[in-house]
Design a protein around this nucleic acid. Structure first.
Lengths: 254, 254
DNA sequence: CGGGTGCTTGAACACAATCAAGAGATGTGG
DNA sequence: CCACATCTCTTGATTGTGTTCAAGCACCCG
């Protein structure tokens, strides 16, 4: 650490952990409990194999609960049925990065062999489907179409990651914010006409900041700036109206 | 664009494209030509299915040649046999990001459906194996073990991407540089004892900068700083000796 | 209501970017 | 093989974007 500090003029750059040492900025709740409903109905989703549906167990998560923590044995694979979650990684000194937000239809826990590398936490109340990894792998081996589907899903995740790498590596704060809003619009089934969309941002400004590699203050300032420039209007702090998507696209830089 | 400029105090922030408009900072060469050797020997690599080896075609790429460009139809999948390549994405105004460097054993062209989203260019003279996507997919469907292998590969790529997201989102310039050097050490078969490793950095400072979300000048300054602090020694501009890996690990921040 | 949390805003600062110039390497053609 | 042109790398001076520090405001739920 002595050497590391030789490179930073100010020792205050890195946030100091509280004495107890929180694992995440948000007070982590307890693990989610499974619902014990032997005959629980599983909603049929288009395109996904019946074999997978048969091994899935329904699960609900209250707001802010930790689904799994980095380092836990990766024994389960999950699909989001409803709600929003965040995938989080931490540096030892407490700096946090939100790898991605998860929405209905997204899978997680797939990309790990052995141990989860990220923590996943519920941003809103969520309902999930849980698949034991063993059975999941068995289905993938047996059912070629399920395998291809999951494969395509991972391709999509990789493409998304690459877009984020470009964003974090080369975009300005304003471009990041605009890109993020467009992402949210793309994920949510937005209400309103094409040119007057309402979207909800369930996550906190801090979550957004940690996703975009910025600070809470910068995100807040950008929201204000976007509002002044009529790129967005606020119904509430977590409800936005986007009058002109094209204007946002121009801001996003690509 | 008028709106976009309202957010940047200086118009000079974004590099202006030259009149011709280069697709990449490096003058792009022509496409690689396949070697027409009907009976060409394919080196057997441990762990990979014979079925895949049978459909692979050998290919060589001279330094700086473009293997495929973003937007091309994704009709081929490649494996790196030898050499180093870079995966590049560009913003319309010319800002560049190097998503990753590819080394022997890495696959690319996998994560795309339809069109390549990234450009891949040879950093050094390279030899590749090329697989027609149709046949590749057929092998994956037929051979479960090959499928699982590729699946594991994509998992690994996702994990790597996530590490890069954390790096670009939350690490300082010095930490990025240290992390990058450790990555290179991990990929190259390093010469020397554990505590006196020599690694080669075939890519330019510009490539490194565009990979780490920095500028050439910052990368150069960090090399100098690391040298002054005895974290590295330079045999040449592209050959480094790392006297103490642990010291570098401290710098990397995780 | 009161206390806590999250959001917003302002002022000062720092890290890395930009601008600029020179040194070193690499390649080309006579 | 050398002279010249070009590109890459390094170093210095200055600037700017986003951070840090600080304080006030809004909202939610007890």
């Amino acid at each position: 650490m002595a050497l590391a500090q030789a490179f930073s003029q100010t020792a205050t750059r890195m946030p100091i952990l509280p004495p107890g040492g929180f694992p995440s900025r948000h007070p982590a709740g307890m693990r989610g409990q499974e619902i014990n409903q032997p005959g629980a109905k599983v909603v049929s989703l288009p395109g996904m194999s019946d074999a997978l549906q048969r091994i899935g167990q329904p699960l609900v998560m209250p707001r802010n609960r930790v689904v799994h923590e980095a380092g836990d044995p990766a024994s389960q694979i999950y699909k989001v049925v409803d709600g929003t979650l965040r995938v989080v990684q931490l540096l030892p000194d407490g700096r946090r990065h939100v790898i991605s937000f998860l929405h209905a239809g997204d899978y997680f826990g797939l990309d790990e062999n052995g141990e989860y590398v990220s923590t996943v936490e519920a941003v809103t109340d969520c309902s999930l489907t849980r698949y034991p990894r063993r059975q999941f792998d068995a289905v993938l081996d047996a059912d070629a179409s399920a395998g291809r589907q999951i494969f395509r899903l991972m391709c999509h995740q990789l493409t998304t990651s690459n877009r984020m790498l470009l964003l974090l590596g080369r975009k300005t704060a304003a471009e990041r914010m605009a890109s993020f809003l467009l992402d949210i619009v793309g994920h949510s089934m937005p209400c309103g006409e094409a040119n007057h969309v309402t979207v909800s941002l369930p996550m906190s400004r801090g979550d957004i900041a940690d996703h975009l590699g910025l600070t809470v203050e910068t995100v807040s300032r950008l929201v204000t700036k976007f509002r002044q420039h009529k790129l967005i209007r606020l119904a509430s702090a977590h409800e936005m109206i986007i009058p002109d998507i094209e204007a946002l696209r121009d801001m996003a830089g690509d």
